[in-house]
Each structure stands twice: as C-alpha cells, then as structure tokens.
Amino acid sequence: MKTTIALIALTAALAAPMAAQAHRAWLAPTSTVLSGTDAWVGFDGGMSNGVFIPDHAAMRLEGLVITAPDGSTAQPENVMRGQYRSTFDLHLTQNGTYKIANVMSGVMASYTLNGEQKRWRGQAAEFPGALPQGASDVVATRTSNRIETFVTLNNPTDTVFTNSASGLEMIPVTHPNDLVAGEAATFKLSNDGAPAAGVEVTVARGGLRYRDNPEESTVTTGADGSFTVTWPEPGMYWLNASLRTPAQGETIASNAQYVAVVEVLP
C-alpha cells in the first residue's frame, strides 16, 4: 500500500477555513477579568471576514474543553448554535484562571479500492488500520486545530498553561489576563511539544466595523518559540499562527493552526 500523509487544518470540523483562507475563526469572551465569590462569562464563537463580527458561520463546539484552575474540566451552560455564531455561558466558581479551548484533530484520507475512489475520516490512532484490505494510492490528511481564550476570577494563576505536545500551542510568559495597552507581552509557541521557531504570528484588534484601518501586524517567533507584542490600543485581540512542515524521510508532513483571543485593558 502506497501511503502519502499530509497534515492540514481541520476546516471541515470547524465549518469554515482558518486565517489562511478568507474567513477567520474566533472564540470571544464577554469579559476576561472578574472578581467576587463567583461570576458568569458568556462566549461567542464564529467564522467571519473581520474578527469578532458574526457574519459568516457559527463555530462547531464538539471539541470544546474548559479547564478550571484546579485542573478539573468545567462544563459550559446554555449552549446554542445559531446561523452566524455559537454561544455558551461559563459559571466561574474557583479563584484563578480558566482555559477555554476548542480543539479538533483527526485524519481524512482518500484511497482507491477495486478501481473506485473512496474516502475515510477518523482519529489518528485508527489510521491506517481502519482502511480496508487492498486499499491503494492512499492520500491522508492528519489534522490539528486549536482555538482558545482565557478568563480569570480574582487572582491570575498559571496551572492551566500545560503543554499537550500535540500541534501548535501557546504557553504564556506574560499572563494573558494581565495585558495592558502600551506594555509589551511575551508568549511562547510550541509545535508537538518542541519550540516553534520562525513562525509568523498575526495580531489583529477587533472593532474593524467601526474604522477604516484594520490594525493588523505580524511578529515572528525566535529560536525558543517566543514572540513579543506591544499592544497599541485597548480592546479584544486575535492571535493566529500556522506552521507547515514538509515530509522528510519517515517524518509525516504537517500543517498546524492556532488561534488565541485575549483582552488588552487600558
């Protein structure tokens, strides 16, 4: 069986392309820093031409995982999927920082069997064993796509910033709920657990509907995967990175995507 494997973004599972295409995926909270014994935060998720403007498609939330400050999994409430956006609420009951992530991965493959073109989709652990005997001319895509944001009740904590070593991930150096306009913030990108060097990160501020200037810039990660952003204005920001790695020998080619949404305060 001749097999060619390439890793591309899981656009079908999220119902729309990521930043490499016309539409951008985002998961935006109504607030990021709250206080009190408990609090509620709402979230919108969608794909659109301008970030945070629900005008194209709602985000599918099958891969939604919410990690509480103590490492447990919190559950979303009042989940709804509309035409242009998906929404849900989160009840914050623990002091500290929560990570809200929509993570999708898998394998999509095409192959020839008895002269007919066939398709298969499933998890990476199932491939290629799930293909029928006699499958040939196999072209498979292993997918990795992560969209996340962070909210904090009272004091920021860093217990949720763990690395799963799967696809592109961001490990903050500066806490993502402690961002201030005019000040520099540093983050690190990793790919499959290793520093993601030389990766271009797009930074875009929301509110495009009310101005002519898109206020978009790019920075490139250093040898250790770190990059620094100095926020020009307060607001909600969209960070996006993608990484394509060609196949070399036995190494599988890859294309990973990452999105973070952060709020910058005055």
Rank of each mutant, 00 (worst) to 15 (best):
G249W: 08
N78D: 15
P234Q: 02
V138Q: 07
A247W: 08
Q248K: 14
M18F: 10
A194N: 15
S31T: 09
R209Y: 06
P69Y: 05
A196Q: 04
K2H: 12
T202M: 07
W40D: 10
G63H: 04
P172T: 05
L243G: 08
D137S: 11
R209D: 14
L265D: 11
D38M: 05
Q123K: 11
V103L: 07
L90M: 10
N95S: 06
F187K: 00
S242H: 09
L239P: 02
A39W: 01
T245Q: 13
I53H: 13
G96R: 02
Q248F: 12
K188T: 15
A25S: 09
V51F: 05
V262G: 02
A241L: 11
V79F: 00
V79G: 00
L265S: 04
V139P: 00
A6W: 07
T97R: 03
V199L: 04
P54H: 08
Q123V: 13
D212Y: 04
A28I: 13
S35H: 11
A25P: 01
A16R: 10
I53S: 11
G182F: 00
H175F: 06
A16K: 05
A181S: 12
R60N: 15
A20K: 11
G82C: 02
A19I: 13
T245R: 11
T228P: 03
T112N: 04
A253F: 02
G50L: 12
D178S: 15
A74S: 12
V229W: 00
T228H: 06
T186Y: 03
N240E: 10
G46E: 01
E215I: 15
S48M: 14
M80P: 00
H56F: 15
L243H: 04
V264G: 01
V261S: 14
G106M: 05
S110T: 08
D158W: 01
K99A: 11
S164K: 14
G46F: 06
V199K: 00
V151L: 02
G106I: 12
A74P: 01
P176D: 03
A68G: 06
T152F: 07
S35P: 01
S110H: 07
A260S: 12
A196C: 04
P76N: 10
M170A: 15
G182A: 09
I171E: 07
A253E: 09
L10K: 03
G167H: 08
G225D: 03
S226Y: 00
P232I: 01
A101T: 02
T67H: 05
I8Q: 14
T37E: 12
M18A: 13
Q133P: 03
T37M: 08
I171V: 14
D44Q: 14
T87L: 09
L243D: 05
D89K: 08
S226F: 01
N240F: 11
A57M: 06
Q257W: 05
T245H: 03
R209H: 12
L113I: 09
G50K: 14
T220V: 15
A165P: 03
E62M: 04
T230F: 07
F43W: 06
R142N: 14
A223I: 04
N49W: 11
